[in-house]
Design a protein around this nucleic acid. Structure first.
Lengths: 195, 195, 195, 195
DNA sequence: AATGAATGAGGGTTCATTCAT
DNA sequence: GATGAATGAACCCTCATTCAT
């Protein structure tokens, strides 16, 4: 399994930094190779092409992210607690990996439609996780029973994604995690039965 | 004023079509020039560079959009009605201009950070409009008085933007305007005092 | 018509020299451009791609060659005289253009099958010219009436081509034109009725 | 002697197949190694470099070919019979080894000048064989005594080589051996005293 | 002897922009 | 103002060869 070899990780890590620093279009493969301490050609023993590096980064990071969130919310008993945890962890995750935040929120969106479709496939798993929380909340009557799951999830994801993007574009100057509970509260209100 | 000369409009209109048809990365200046019926060099008499065309497109279209929305919500007396109108018009706007929807939601996001900053400056006016509605709602006590305006606006914009993007990426197959009232309702709930 | 513009000729001439000096695979487009005194990109205003330069060279040179031979043999009354003239002119042609001889006999043959098929299409005209002489000779009874035209032409072309190639590979050291009459005589004998 | 070890043969055989199937430019060393069932590095225990594989192939195959022809013409008493036999066997040889025909007539000619010089050195032995037949024919007075041996040999080789190349380029669709006697007859006529 | 992971040099082509007319 | 021919910088990927094991 190539993914467990040390050079695979080296290249992934180098790529995140190089892309965050130079932007997607100026992240030459040769720059990534130099940063990873391998030859240019070595990249192609581990990745099909430059696009494949990007997809793999997203897969790796997103995989860990979802795993971490899944672990955390498993211990929560209500949908509201779960949603609140998800929002908190989402902000905390990016807050701790600022390079990675730039790559996710800005650089990966500059890719072509082909690539973005693949990225969306990977994102799918995260969106499904949100869907599950919403469905559970509907059944628990924590949320409105007539909630449209797709639209609800788009509100949840759209909101937190917009906040992170805005934070990244403003140079990550303020403490994004401080907003967690306010945002979670607004979202929960949005999904709950009318007052 | 260059903006009132006929060639300016010709080039803008040609650019929107060429970008929507070919995607951002294949929208060469020469293609836009040919479609506009002018020489390549003529473009540079009206625009500083290629980026400037994109920014100008966004400015033009966004300006009209904001004007239209402003006119409509001026007649509404409550913040809730205003917000609901904004959501409705946002969806209706893109629903009626599918080329433009592709350009805004997908193609323009493939531009570099520099350009995206300028796009955000233009977007600013729209975001300010949302802010005003929220502030009004807070004063009216339609919304929670302790609402964080920035976060509230990010929820509103993030939600509707995510819905439109998702609709575009899925090939604009379903009728997006049908969701207006559900989405508006969820957002209003999110901003309102707890039940 | 691009072919009549001065830069077209400049590039063609530069390409012949650069290919003859460096070999097909080491004739970088940038080298050709520099030799022609134009920018790299200018090449692509006149030629579709690198292959197209090669094909165009062959077309140009071969066209002139066939024209010259056609003019000369038009004045001859017998097939034998015509064939003799063709052999003489073939040798004389390459003898006077040593760079071009290297390109034709060695470099162009290193191209891929795709390209060689296109080269053969252009060569076709020359082969047809030989065919016509052979057919005329059969009708005149200068040559055997039962002659297989294709095989006869392959003998004629194969022979002179092999002689030129060998001369080029040996560094064009001896005077190739001195062999014209001997070769022509052998070929005529080969095509004539048995003694 | 490395040539007698089993892996040497394995690699040679694999190389012929790989080149015939993929063409010269796509016949990577790694593909040859895989087909031969050895590691990439092992190739370099038996061959100096990639070129050396090609030269060795040609040497091996050509050696067998010349041996076979030599054996056959040893039994013929006249130069004309010998030449006729050579033509027949040349066509029959390629007719029976269509992969090898592609490699010899098309793929090997795509190699660089350096390599082609070495190939010509190996071919030399075959050309010498033709020379000997011509010299014998001159002494026997079967052929013209004043014949230029080099030119005569170039006619013989050029003719049969052109016919085989043409047959290969046309996809080896017709039966090339059917032409043997016609071609041999034309060549003998070309070399014989005038009628 | 055999392996195969690692190396790293090398080049065709696009397209935003300029400037002489 | 308008033209459009000319410019030239910029980069991903392949694959023959090596060498530590």
């Amino acid at each position: 399994m190539k993914k467990n070899k040390p050079k695979y990780k080296q290249i992934i890590d180098a790529a995140v930094m190089v892309i965050a620093e130079n932007g997607y279009h100026h992240a030459q493969v040769s720059k990534i190779a130099k940063r990873a301490g391998v030859a240019d050609g070595t990249i192609y023993l581990y990745f099909k092409n430059k696009e494949d590096i990007l997809i793999s980064i997203f897969e790796e990071k997103m995989g860990l992210f979802i795993e971490k969130i899944n672990g955390e919310i498993a211990g929560k008993s209500t949908a509201i607690e779960k949603l609140t945890t998800l929002v908190e962890m989402h902000f905390k995750h990016f807050s701790g990996e600022q390079h990675w935040a730039v790559v996710t929120q800005l650089e990966l969106r500059q890719s072509n439609q082909e690539l973005r479709k693949k990225i969306n496939e990977i994102l799918r798993e995260y969106l499904d996780l949100i869907d599950l929380i919403i469905i559970e909340g509907k059944q628990n009557q924590e949320f409105k029973p007539e909630l449209d799951v797709r639209l609800a999830r788009q509100m949840v994801f759209g909101t937190i994604d917009e906040i992170v993007t805005s934070w990244v574009m403003k140079g990550q100057k303020f403490n994004i995690t401080a907003n967690s509970s306010i945002v979670a509260h607004m979202l929960v209100n949005g999904l709950s039965a009318d007052g």
